[in-house]
Design a protein around this nucleic acid. Structure first.
Length: 953
RNA sequence: GCGAGCGUAGCUCAGCGGCAGAGCACCGCCUUCACACGGCGGGGGUCACAGGUUCAAUCCCUGUCGCUCGCACCA
């Protein structure tokens, strides 16, 4: 006999219940809940979709393996987790794949710093990696990585990130290293990777080549030195001008020391000032080398003297110029930061020393005309902020143009869409002008380049595995020496969307989750990472790596400056988590994640959302207290079904909150779908606090005090609303919502999908509950009008109380005069609610007729919707003068409103051209304001008459 | 120089054609039986500036000023 549920031998599993504390205390439940989710596989995706199920996947932008969590991480991971949890609740097979990056230079620098502190090397200087040797150093770095890797992942867990940890990857793990070698070999075979001597950026401190992107042009104060180059002819004889004087060229430079490597001077071909110098030569100051005067339209006649010194070995533009004019290149600046032997007498000097000496010698030689102050940009190493120098060096490059073309097309054709869209322009700009990518780095920590050089034939063998012989002359492995360099960190990151899913193996995960659904990251790495993933994805997977690129704003420090590791101005989000909880931080980041503006995080804001969490906590506590006061049976068929069935019998506040809930669901869903998380957050906040707590819960207190059907339907409505709200809030505040949801009595006992296969026990978790959908049959505009009218009455009375400083403890009678039988009925129906919310003693119909004197002894509060006039006896309650002031203020406001409306209505053009319904509504407004003004003015007159004493009376 | 974005209440930010909104801060009243991480009321803004389009502009267009970020840099 098969017993249903026999597969679930242990029965459903839920987190252990906890005491319901007085207030929101996140530290009590965040860690245990995360452990519960993780232990029970709640974050795990399936390699294959269920029938009819869609896949949704995001790969994490891998943080540095030895890094610490900063605000940028907190933002991107919060946003991604919100989207991930949302899709998971919508029923998609949802994968969020975690991992870390080996971060070549950054990690190596950390370890180098650490060993430096450990002691002295043989030379007596601090220990360097060279003292240890490559093998030992790498061993140390691996250990360092192992020791530190949990830090960043644990920090991600603190935020509640629902990453599938079983799939965690590292850019240097075995699989990813295989992917890197596969890509390298293929590109090499296709001629898209080559080795060559080119001008590249070199950081003399990091002792490595850098890509263009790793050099940051930075404003620096400098000088403009004006130097004299004497002109000679081919034979070396001086050239004289028309005035008989010896011809000279004055050339301005910001880097005088580079003249040592000058191989030409250039002027504009149509520059008449220098027309006589075409085909002549210049004598290089100090070194006396004879160099040609070349002409090129590249030279800007307006700038400086209109003449340019050409140093092909140490300037990118001069390099191009040199190639065009077939000039020799003379490398005078060495990788060690010192002048090379080619620099003659300056050889061996540091660059800065060389500059001083060159300037000094020029001055002495009378070849220095003047020195000006000059602001210009200097390229700094992104990592160490040392000046990076362009030098000529043999490096590995990716020939990028053939890869860029399809990547441009993919975005042009909309196969990848950027959001905000304006970033596409930035992307195109860079991609159209892209230069070959220098991928070799003179580091040890990274993917060693899979190229071997043969000692016998000097040829290069590129292979996936260590070759056992030279591919060219078949010399044995002992003749082969592997390239010492490693690849740019971003080379392995570029493969991340497919290498992490098992490529080059054809895995199920790869076919299920590639292309990934979206990529969420900061715009600062569009070129470093996003563009390169697109190029590599298209080339190797024949498909885009993702369909959407969401770029969030930059999180800045309190001064509005970019936070960066090297600046050391990072704010630790974990401190905020400890102080306020993960959910308030998440909600803050989501609320501030509006596009197009930098995020300056303030702790006040986090505190505000902590209060919001506390509000939700207490709203749920309120429900429990009500249930304890007298339990109600769970509705048969579930709360939703019950509410649908009994919709017509529901009290107005119940119908109202259900209707408002639908509006909230719609706004949240739209916000998530449009990637406007701030809108979604705002909708959640408004609904929860200003509708549910401020009005509904207050209104519910009356029926909840009763016994019978009114109480029953109100408890059911409250439960339903809370339960739905918790599901709606869950992607934003996973911990709080799970903790509270677990306490609800009528929740669905366990999920019915995904986790209950293979005989595993079912898991009771909010994570797998369905994300709320709008129930259009719960929309109720009539109830909304009713509650709006109640609110208008309540707010008018509260305002009267507040403005007149009547203590909340003082109770008084309010009398009303309805303008219609319907208004009368309305007030009578909701008098109890109005009394309760305003703490007045009673709301009675005011008697009319000759017997009632209208003598100014009452305050008058006219209302438009509902159309009633409220009156309060002033005797013993309010000073007449105070009330007169209140009336006066009110009159002023109504009068100015009226003027505004009448101003519009007095314009012919408005009447003829504005939409008819607008005109009509303005006329209605006018009428209402007029009668309100009349009532107020009359009341003000009466009260003035009265207070001026018996004479007036 | 080219491109993008931003200038709205003291602060941080929403809104983006029909009488200016939130949170925090501020002032007054209230420890009322979910919440003082709370409730109620209040003050506070020529929506950077100047033109234009429109019946109507904080919102659209043009220009100016200020700030930020990319890209290119002129040596």
């Amino acid at each position: 006999m098969v017993i249903f549920g026999a597969m679930c031998a242990k029965g459903p599993i839920a987190p252990a219940p906890r005491e319901f504390t007085k207030n929101y205390e996140p530290s009590l439940f965040e860690a245990p809940l995360y452990r519960f989710w993780e232990e029970h596989g709640c974050f795990e995706a399936s390699d294959e979709n269920e029938p009819g199920q869609a896949a949704f996947s995001i790969v994490i932008p891998p943080p540095n393996v030895t890094g610490v969590l900063h605000m940028g991480h907190a933002l991107t991971n919060t946003i991604q987790d919100i989207l991930i949890r949302w899709h998971r609740m919508k029923g998609d097979n949802t994968l969020w794949l975690p991992g870390t990056d080996h971060a070549g230079i950054a990690t190596q620098a950390q370890v180098e710093k650490a060993i430096m502190k450990e002691g002295k090397g043989p030379s007596g200087k601090p220990l360097t990696r060279h003292d240890l040797g490559r093998e030992a150093f790498l061993k140390r770095t691996w250990k360092w990585k192992e020791d530190h890797k949990d830090q960043i992942t644990n920090q991600l867990k603190r935020l509640g990130s629902s990453l599938d940890w079983k799939r965690e990857r590292f850019t240097m793990d075995e699989g990813l290293s295989a992917a890197v070698r596969e890509v390298f070999v293929k590109l090499y075979d296709e001629g898209l990777i080559y080795r060559g001597e080119r001008i590249i950026n070199w950081c003399p401190r990091c002792q490595t080549a850098l890509s263009d992107l790793e050099v940051v042009p930075t404003d620096r104060k400098g000088n403009f030195w004006h130097l004299v180059y004497r002109i000679v002819d081919e034979k070396g004889d001086p050239v004289l001008g028309t005035d008989g004087q010896r011809r000279e060229l004055v050339i301005a430079t910001t880097r005088p020391e580079t003249l040592l490597g000058d191989t030409a001077v250039a002027v504009h071909p149509e520059d008449e000032r220098y027309a006589d110098l075409h085909g002549k030569y210049a004598i290089l100051p100090l070194l006396g080398r004879k160099i040609p005067v070349i002409t090129d339209a590249y030279v800007d006649r307006e700038f400086g003297s209109g003449a340019l010194k050409v140093t092909p070995a140490h300037d990118f533009n001069d390099y191009e110029l040199g190639r065009k004019h077939q000039l020799p290149t003379i490398s005078v600046m060495g990788k060690d930061g010192r002048i090379t032997p080619a620099g003659g007498p300056y050889s061996g000097l540091k660059f800065s020393e060389a500059r001083e000496r060159v300037v000094q010698d020029l001055r002495e030689a009378g070849l220095l005309v003047k020195i000006e102050d000059h602001q210009h940009k200097v390229g700094l190493c992104q990592r160490c902020e040392h000046v990076a120098e362009p030098i000529i060096s043999k490096q590995w490059f990716v020939k990028i143009e053939p890869l860029a073309r399809p990547a441009i097309e993919a975005v042009e054709k909309g196969r990848i869409v950027f959001s905000p869209k304006s970033w596409e322009k930035t992307y195109f700009e860079w991609m159209y002008n892209i230069r070959d990518w220098c991928i070799s780095r003179q580091l040890w920590w990274g993917h060693q380049i899979p190229a071997w050089y043969c000692g016998r034939c000097q040829e290069t063998t590129v292979a996936r595995q260590s070759p056992d012989q030279c591919a060219h002359c078949h010399a044995p492995a002992s003749e082969l020496k592997q390239d010492e360099d490693v690849l740019d960190t971003w080379f392995s990151s570029a493969l991340w969307p497919f290498s992490t899913l098992g490529w080059p193996e054809k895995t199920k995960a790869l076919s299920t989750f590639y292309p990934t659904s979206i990529l969420e990251t900061g715009f600062d790495i569009i070129f470093f990472w996003v563009a390169r993933m697109i190029m590599m994805g298209l080339h190797f997977m024949d498909d885009v790596p993702f369909h959407k690129v969401y770029l969030h704003a930059m999180v800045r420090d309190e001064k509005g400056e970019k936070m960066s590791k090297s600046k050391g101005n990072v704010i630790d989000p974990l401190v905020l988590v400890e102080r306020h909880g993960a959910d308030p931080l998440r909600f803050t980041l989501a609320a501030m994640a509006g596009q197009g503006r930098d995020i300056k995080l303030s702790e006040d804001r986090v505190e505000g959302y902590r209060a919001f969490c506390n509000k939700i906590w207490n709203a749920t506590k309120f429900f429990h207290l009500q249930l304890e006061a007298g339990t109600v049976a769970e509705p048969v068929g579930g709360a939703e079904h019950w509410l649908f069935e009994h919709r017509a019998e529901l009290l107005a506040p119940n119908r109202w909150i259900l209707s408002r809930l639908q509006v909230a669901i719609q706004r949240v869903d739209k916000g998530l779908a449009d990637f406007e998380l701030n809108d979604a957050a705002q909708a959640l906040y408004d609904f929860s606090w200003h509708e549910l707590c401020d009005w509904y819960i207050e209104l519910s207190k009356l029926p909840l005090k009763e016994a019978g059907p009114a109480r029953q339907q109100t408890l059911i409505t409250l439960h339903y609303t809370l339960e739905t709200l918790l599901r709606l809030l869950h992607p934003f505040m996973p911990f709080l919502t799970e903790e509270l949801w677990q306490t609800l009595p009528w929740k669905k006992p366990a999920n019915t999908r995904a986790r209950d296969r293979d005989g595993k026990p079912q898991i009771v978790t909010l994570m797998f509950q369905e994300f709320p959908k709008v129930q259009t049959n719960l929309h109720d505009s009539e109830a909304e009008r009713t509650i709006d009218a109640i609110r208008a009455v309540v707010e008018a009375i509260r305002n009267f109380r507040g403005e007149n400083n009547i203590s909340p403890k003082v109770s008084f009678v309010v009398r009303y005069t309805p303008a219609s039988p319907a208004a009368d009925a309305f007030i009578r129906m909701f008098a109890n609610e109005i009394n309760a919310l305003t703490r007045i003693s009673s709301l009675d119909r005011r008697s009319t007729g000759a017997s009632v004197a209208d003598d100014g002894s009452e305050a008058v509060i006219p209302l438009t919707n509902p159309p009633v006039e409220l009156r309060v006896s002033l005797e013993g309650l309010v000073d007449h003068e105070e009330e007169r002031k209140r009336l006066q203020k009110e009159i002023e406001k109504v009068r100015s409103d009226l003027e505004h409306v009448q101003g519009k209505l007095s314009q012919e053009k408005f009447l003829s051209r504005a939409p008819a319904e607008l005109v009509a509504s303005e006329r209605q407004k006018e009428a209402a304001l007029k009668s309100k003004l009349q009532e107020l003015t009359a009341a003000a007159e009466r009260i003035t008459t009265r207070s001026t004493g018996p004479k007036g009376a």
